[in-house]
């Protein structure tokens, strides 16, 4: 195919060999950079620069409603204020709490699902499509659907619980109940996706390992614990990190789950206001650009710390096994 298209080239090149040679060298050295340039340009302009600029703004006292406050340098003052700010600490607590409640059951359930999907069965593709379906619907649509399902008086979930004698729960009102509901939304949307990631890794485990274990008399559960889980460790670590980063940035679910006039408060007592919601609230609700930026950077530092802790813990666990 390539040969037929470029058949005319050598003849033309022979007429001006030096020029052609130079052009060829230029093409070889320059074109790789041209091909990767779009990503780096977009990232520099709309990723890296805004991120650094957020860092700068977070050290100023910029408030849109106070003229002349732009560029008013306050150093680390905003970060010091964060530590005394009950609303920030509350948002931090909510973010971590909802994060744990959504990530841990989600990944455990995904592991079980992947294990079952790995059996030889009929309708394989149908099962996989079924569990992945929640992931393609939008955060906004999914949350609004669940707000209805979690409705206090007429929601299907309370009705179902009622069959078992449970009193109607006002899911938005309590701390634990609202965390549970929001975590359920996240879990519903992401379990199938993670199950497919785990399934892919499971299929790469050599079958001989299981055969050998079976000969040694290891039970199915023992095989799952001693072969599947260790072999999947890199994939599990990857999923833990990706889910953690997602959980710490949770925004759409708590915003649309709230029934208040101001959706950024995260419930009447701020019981499910996450860090992302709080940052948004400070920025667009209170016009405190500097303080809102500090909340964003604190969130990023938290992600770095937690991801770092994950990586260190993973290395420790590896060391213990060896």
């Amino acid at each position: 195919m390539a040969a037929s298209v470029s058949a005319g080239r050598p003849a033309r090149a022979a007429r001006a060999p030096v020029a052609a040679h130079r052009r060829h060298r230029l093409d070889r050295t320059l074109s790789p950079y041209l091909y990767i340039a779009p990503f780096f340009l977009v990232f520099a302009g709309f990723g890296l620069f805004p991120m650094l600029y957020t860092g700068y703004v977070s050290m100023t006292n910029w408030r849109v409603d106070v003229p002349g406050s732009q560029g008013q340098w306050v150093g680390l003052e905003n970060y010091r204020k964060l530590l005394d700010d009950p609303f920030f600490l509350n948002a931090l607590k909510n973010t971590v709490g909802i994060g744990v409640l959504s990530t841990v059951p989600q990944l455990l359930l995904a592991l079980v699902l992947a294990h079952l999907l790995n059996y030889r069965m009929r309708g394989r593709t149908l099962f996989r499509l079924g569990v992945l379906l929640p992931n393609v619907t939008s955060v906004a649509a999914v949350t609004l659907i669940f707000v209805q399902l979690f409705g206090r008086d007429y929601g299907l979930i309370n009705w179902t619980l009622g069959l078992f004698g449970v009193e109607h729960i006002d899911w938005q009102a309590g701390t634990l109940s609202s965390w549970t509901a929001i975590s359920a939304i996240v879990t519903w949307r992401w379990t199938g996706y993670n199950a497919l990631i785990f399934l892919a890794a499971m299929q790469a485990v050599p079958f001989e390992l299981y055969e050998a274990a079976a000969i040694d008399g290891a039970s199915r559960w023992r095989q799952f614990r001693s072969i599947t889980v260790p072999m999947l460790r890199p994939t599990i670590l990857f999923s833990v990190i990706v889910s953690t980063i997602g959980a710490l940035q949770l925004f759409g679910e708590p915003m649309l789950f709230g029934q208040q006039q101001d959706p950024t408060t995260g419930g009447s007592q701020h019981q499910f206001q996450t860090l992302a919601l709080y940052s948004y609230n400070q920025f667009w609700g209170r016009f405190k650009y500097g303080y809102g930026a500090a909340v964003s950077w604190a969130m990023f530092l938290l992600i770095v710390v937690i991801v770092g802790a994950n990586l260190i813990a993973a290395r420790r666990m590896k060391g213990l096994d060896a």
Binding site: P50, T54, F251, F283, Y289, S296, M299, F300, I303
Partner: peptide, 24 residues
């Protein structure tokens, strides 16, 4: 190193730059 940079940027949360991005 450029490829490593690409991978590392996947870790950066999009929300971090949202305020300046809006100002821009």
């Amino acid at each position: 190193p450029l490829l490593a940079t690409v991978v590392a940027t996947m870790m950066v949360p999009t929300q971090l730059g949202i305020i300046p991005l809006y100002i821009m």
